[in-house]
Every structure is written in structure tokens, then in C-alpha cells.
Design a protein around this nucleic acid. Sequence first.
DNA 1: ATAATGACATGTT
DNA 2: TAACATGCCATTA
Length: 130
Amino acid sequence: MATQSIFTSKVLKAVKLIPKGKVASYGQVASMVGVPRAARQVGRVLYEHGGKNKIPWWRVINNNGYIVIKNPEHSPNEQKELLEAEGIKINKKLKIDIKKYRYIPTKKDLKILENDDLYIQLILRKFKNL
DNA sequence: ATAATGACATGTT
DNA sequence: TAACATGCCATTA
């Protein structure tokens, strides 16, 4: 296996920070690792690494609250069941009340991801207003 | 070095 | 509400 890029390793680290019973959006994870507009890249990382190294890939959904997984090894229904097993309610259209379940990162977690103080303040404000 | 790709996000119809 | 359009950027070809 090739050496992972900084971006990839940070994404994996960030996803592991999402607590059981909570979810985060792709764009949110991108912001957490310092590249706010790299949501699609977060999706690609999970496509490759989902199911490996205890990565809780199922806790990442899109910003509208929908399960949008496209991976032959992990179906939308599998993701739904994994989330329900953690106590999250999901309707028939695979929609989640993201306002209710969204993980708001802590300063400590954002420090772990090597963000500087100014940037941390910035994205904390951003997610608290959701 | 250049171009295409896509587990997204956001604004406009 | 849903469909469509545009912007994005790490990877890959």
C-alpha cells in the first residue's frame, strides 16, 4: 500500500473523531481537516478506505442529511442499519435529522487535526450556527 | 504537464 | 420540493 497523503490521513483521523450516535457531513469533515471545499475528496477517501482500520465511514452523510453512498461493498441500506444501531432515526428516503445528530467538533479535536487557533475559531462558529 | 473524475455543496429555476 | 447548473480540488490516467 502506497504512502497516504497528508490529506487522506487527516480525513481518516477526522472521521474517527465522530462519536457513536452522531454524524458529520462530507463538507464538514473537509473543513475539519483544513480544506473546506474538498467535500468530494472526502467521499473518495471513504470510498477507498471504508471498511478498513475501524473507520466509522457510516457516520458521514451529505449536508442535506441524506445517505448518498455509492460503493459496491457498502449499500445505502447497510449504512442505514449501522446508524440505526447507534440510535439514529432515519426515514424511508434515507433522510436523517442532521440538525439533531450532527457532531460539533471540539477545540481539542480540531487541535488534533493540526489546525491553527484562528482557523479553529472560524469553523467552530460556522458549525455552531447550523 | 494536462485533463478527466467524482460517497459533495450551494445557488438558481 | 425537485431538477439543474456551477464551483471545487485531491487523485488518477
